[in-house]
Amino acid sequence: MRPRVRLPGPVRNLNLSRGTYMATVELRFSALPAHVRTARLVAAAVARQAGVDESVLDEVRLAVGEACSRAVSLHVRNGVAHPVRVRLTQQEKRFLIEVGDGVPTPVTSHADSSAAEALSLAAGANGSSGGEQTDDTMGLAVISGLVDDLVIGHDDDGGLIRMSWPIADPADIEL
């Protein structure tokens, strides 16, 4: 399935957060590594449009990529056929990104991943090639290090990573 971008409209079958704000863009893609780049590019473009500061767009791109890579990996490992869900929402003062996977088990095992944990896994130079746990832990360590406002939890459909960045006040933008 090719990536599909949904422009604002009725929210159906997407059980991500249902707050006051309608998603600016919703994206669903089959769990293929090739589509993660598309998700990164879309997220960065929408974040820029929403007014996220240029200096943090690299962080947005990386964090979304990590979250999507992790979701793809979970889908593949667990044989989940559902698409990975990405919801990009421009709120009044924040730009919210939610990445949902379809794996029902709540994400708790590596939710507290830290640089120290990633480092200890990486430093175990025993000749092995670095496995799924290393990638997973490293991915969450990167997200945790990049994003100040981060919630790793789950919704009815599976794991859910929610992160947000401030939006520049239009009054502060020099014309």
Binding site: R40, L62, A122, A125, V142
Partner: peptide
């Protein structure tokens, strides 16, 4: 661009 998957590959190379 580099993400954690790339880091994992470099770590794997280092171990090898």
């Amino acid at each position: 661009f580099l993400d954690s998957t790339g880091l994992g590959v470099l770590v794997g190379g280092l171990k090898r």
